[in-house]
Amino acid sequence: MAGSISSVSSPDPVLALANIHKAFGGIVAIEDFSLDLHAGEIVALVGDNGAGKSTLVKIVSGVHRPTSGEIRLDGDPVSFSDASSARSLGIEVVYQDLALADQQPVYMNMFLGRELIKPPFGLLDRKRMHRECQQLVDELDVRIPSAGSVIRDLSGGQRQGIAIARATHWASKLVLLDEPTAALGVAETAKVEEQVASLKEKNLAILIISHSLDQVFRLADRICVLRRGQQIGVRETAKTDKNEIVSMITGVSGKS
């Protein structure tokens, strides 16, 4: 329980960021950022372009290391040497560009870098990957012709569905979503939002970056606002409104 910093609920937060500071050379990207994320909670990270949202995601996913500050997972301090080490601790990222290999089948993307093999020769177990992937996409209601379909033949929404399904399959603690619906139409966006909301039931913690405040208010339990690398504040969605968030993002009405 040593990891509890300033949380309302009793167990350790899944992710606890304390006084994270990140500078590239002399340029400060993130200044003194602190946030707790609990299991089954969706927190949205909002802010203008260049506010530091992506940098923060990269810090949590192990791509960048913070200049100073502390990251705790389930109360234990962690330090990621690279993205693989964050992944091995149960953190998955859905990237803006989805990071899918377009000419490979869905199931190979689902198991990209973690392919299943079978004894005695350690050859790929395509049948099992195909089967497990089919189960997974059916479970998450991602409607694709088959787990054997090639990514290139799928729509943007289907691809996004697969990227999210992959993240949720491998994540045991935390899913980071970077603009998950930026390239999607209305119906596809609704579908993806449904998927994201369903992740709460899996007891994962979710950090989502979005430019759509409507989406943020539909999905998030709490909203964290960044402006020019500074943490402006965190609000519970139920206790705030768009006007307040907008003024926090822009800094115009000085409400922050």
């Binding site: 993205a83 693989s84 992944r87 990222v93 990237y95 560009d97 989805l98 990071a99 899918l100 290999a101 377009d102 993307n109 990209l112 870098g113 973690r114």
Partner: peptide, 9 residues
């Protein structure tokens, strides 16, 4: 997709 491969470990 070299980047996808990279981020997949």
């Amino acid at each position: 997709n070299a980047r996808a491969a990279q981020v997949s470990g």
